[in-house]
Design a protein around this nucleic acid. Structure first.
Lengths: 151, 151
DNA sequence: CAGTATCCCTCAAGATACTG
DNA sequence: CAGTATCTTGAGGGATACTG
């Protein structure tokens, strides 16, 4: 994996897609984010859900925290432990996760219509599109959604 | 990377996000798709743009064709060569690429507003959100966009 | 030009044992 | 429980030479 002279270095990618992919394009990062959207907050929950090795999980969580996607907080229930929560920057990944999910549902699972996993809270209708930021009347924001685990 | 008993096998992932990520989550697949949206169609173009090793590129292109994201077509100019074009399934990845791009622009490059790389063809306004399928008046479809390369 | 065939190497990821 | 330290393995990926 030596790189001759062309620089595909860590954070020097000139293309936003490439840089985002470099950050989220490994085997686990995106799935951790997905779980975080599902409400997972603790190390052991991530570990069990994903079946990832603990050292890898620790590393990925650290990287996501460093990237400002997750943040460490004291346990919301006053427990001794800490929990990982999505920052605002992390929440902004919602469209990415939804877009990936919908594409996978349609083309990898053959569902013509989106699976019911993502529905609009108020109307109950399946989510069809997503605004990164609701400037035009915000069809749906992260807080406005209901996310259910798939079987 | 031995896997004890839990099956994170190739295409047996029960979660659409996981399966999509498994397909597109390596170092190159998504960038190839991005280039394809930029109008790249030929092997050597991909190769020069990405700086990827030729055997790897050949493998990734084959996988994308197998996955039904790209298709091989005879050269549109009557040349002897073939070219890789996005299938409809591949075109449906547009929201994923745009979502990643916009997130990267906002949070990795610090642009409050989307970079001008993606603008609506008719209005010239930056693309803000995207429908996987334009059922509600299709704010923007792949064919309706102007894509310019970033510096 | 569009690949294929080899060879080689690095690094991501798993297992496991250990610590606070 | 939430990690860290260490060892090991294999797949992913690069370089390069070759073919139709």
């Amino acid at each position: 994996m030596r790189e001759n002279e062309s620089e595909h270095s860590p954070t020097a990618e000139p293309c936003p897609v490439a840089r985002s992919a470099g950050l989220l394009g490994d085997r686990w990062a995106l799935l951790i984010v997905r779980d975080a959207f599902d409400g997972v907050r603790r190390f052991s929950q991530f570990q069990r859900n994903l079946g990832v090795a603990r050292n890898i999980l620790a590393d990925r969580l650290r990287r996501l925290v460093d990237a400002g996607i997750l943040a460490l907080q004291p346990d919301s229930n006053g427990g001794a432990h800490q929990e990982y929560v999505l920052t605002e920057q992390g929440n902004d990944l919602f469209p990415v996760v939804v877009a990936l999910r919908q594409w996978g549902e349609r083309h990898l699972f053959g569902h013509a219509e989106p699976h019911s996993a993502l529905v609009e809270k108020t109307t109950g209708r399946p989510v069809r599109f997503m605004a990164p930021q609701g400037e035009d009347g915000a069809p749906l924001a992260p807080g406005d959604t209901v996310v259910r685990k798939l079987p």
